[in-house]
């Protein structure tokens, strides 16, 4: 268990890495969009372009042994939690080398060895698992925390309320991270929630709540760290409310007829977490160095596509494996 003191904020020396990680996620998801549109990727895909700071800031704050549950918009969380882009891309291509061995796909990304308890295609589906995992840690006296990611749409579903209620009642070491991008698929928050501050929902259970700008990776890290320390020290669960922006549609190919195009463009200009961090690092990272970084992660992404394409297709009858232990 690391001490909170020296890790309460991101060190300046780490920010280059953080930028690199966010850029890797961005380029990875842009590539996923491109390959999907080219007809290479089966299924139903959701990218989190614009929300990289949340994934990277939160996952950096986790300790070894901590676990996460993710959502249908899971690529960023999965990469930030340590899954190699090759394994993630291979999963999106339905290959045995994929992080779920071709059984999961984009909405069911698992990497148990790295503490990823799974993405979930049912909104709010993973929240009770986080309460339960945290209960297991509490009962065994282990200094571990279970953390759930979810969006504002999930705050309307029963599992959200039941999982938070139980977590607070039992004071388990759980952190609930709301990535509030103001959209539940195509439905804006004004149409899906009668209250404007979704933290109030956690407050109603008596839960400690923290807020941060989800586009500012340093703020996200600092807040997540605070939440994790609180939960880990046995003081109970924490609700972390991140103000986020979803740049693209709900799914790849979503024409977003429901959304003001100018507003989306403006947000991409002013609230891009990568641009924002780059601005901050202007003095320490030159344009040239940024280009190098970009080239490096772009090559990693290209390599992941090559890895995935040359991966092994499961045999059709492999479908009947793993149904039971």
């Amino acid at each position: 268990m690391a001490t909170a003191e020296h890790k309460a904020t991101l060190a300046k020396s780490e920010l280059g890495d953080v930028l690199r990680e966010m850029l890797l996620i961005r380029r990875f998801e842009e590539k996923v969009e491109e390959r999907f549109r080219a007809g290479e990727l089966p299924g139903f895909l959701h990218v989190a372009i614009g929300q990289e700071a949340s994934a990277v800031g939160v996952c950096r704050a986790l300790e070894d042994g901590d676990v996460i549950a993710s959502t249908h918009r899971a690529h960023g969380h999965t990469l930030a939690k340590g899954t190699h882009p090759n394994e993630l891309m291979a999963e999106l291509y339905g290959k045995q080398e994929g992080c779920s061995h071709g059984y999961g796909g984009s909405m069911h990304l698992y990497d148990v060895e790295r503490g990823n308890m799974g993405a979930n295609a049912v909104i709010g589906g993973g929240l009770p698992h986080v309460t339960g995992a945290a209960l297991a840690f509490q009962m065994r006296g282990e200094p571990r925390v279970a953390l759930a990611f979810f969006g504002d749409g999930a705050t309307n579903i029963g599992t959200f309320h039941e999982a938070l209620n139980l977590a607070q009642l039992w004071q388990v070491p759980a952190v609930f991270v709301l990535e509030d991008n103001k959209w539940a698929e195509s439905t804006p928050e004004s149409q899906h929630s009668p209250i404007r501050d979704l933290s109030d929902r956690a407050k109603a259970f008596g839960m400690k709540t923290l807020k941060a700008d989800g586009q500012d990776v340093e703020a996200v890290y600092k807040t997540a760290r605070q939440a994790l320390d609180h939960a880990r020290s046995g003081k109970g669960p924490v609700f972390v409310h991140l103000d986020c922006v979803r740049f693209h549609g709900h799914y790849i190919g979503d024409p977003q007829v429901y959304r003001d195009k100018d507003e989306a463009r403006k947000l991409a200009e002013t609230r891009d977490p990568i641009k924002l961090l780059r601005e901050k690092l202007k003095l320490s990272i030159s344009d040239e160095e940024f280009e190098e970084l970009d080239t490096e992660v772009t090559e990693m992404v290209e390599a992941s596509v090559e890895f995935a394409k040359s991966g092994t297709d499961p045999a059709p009858e492999d479908a009947l494996k793993n149904v039971y232990a």
């Binding site: 676990v67 308890m117 589906g125 929240l127 009770p128 698992h129 986080v130 309460t131 339960g132 995992a133 945290a134 209960l135 297991a136 840690f137 009962m139 279970a146 029963g158 599992t159 039941e162 999982a163 209620n165 139980l166």
Partner: peptide, 15 residues
């Protein structure tokens, strides 16, 4: 709270 009861049991079993 059957959803949380069942779901938390699932989460604990996963751990």
């Amino acid at each position: 709270s059957e959803m949380a009861l069942a779901g938390a049991a699932i989460g604990a079993s996963m751990q």
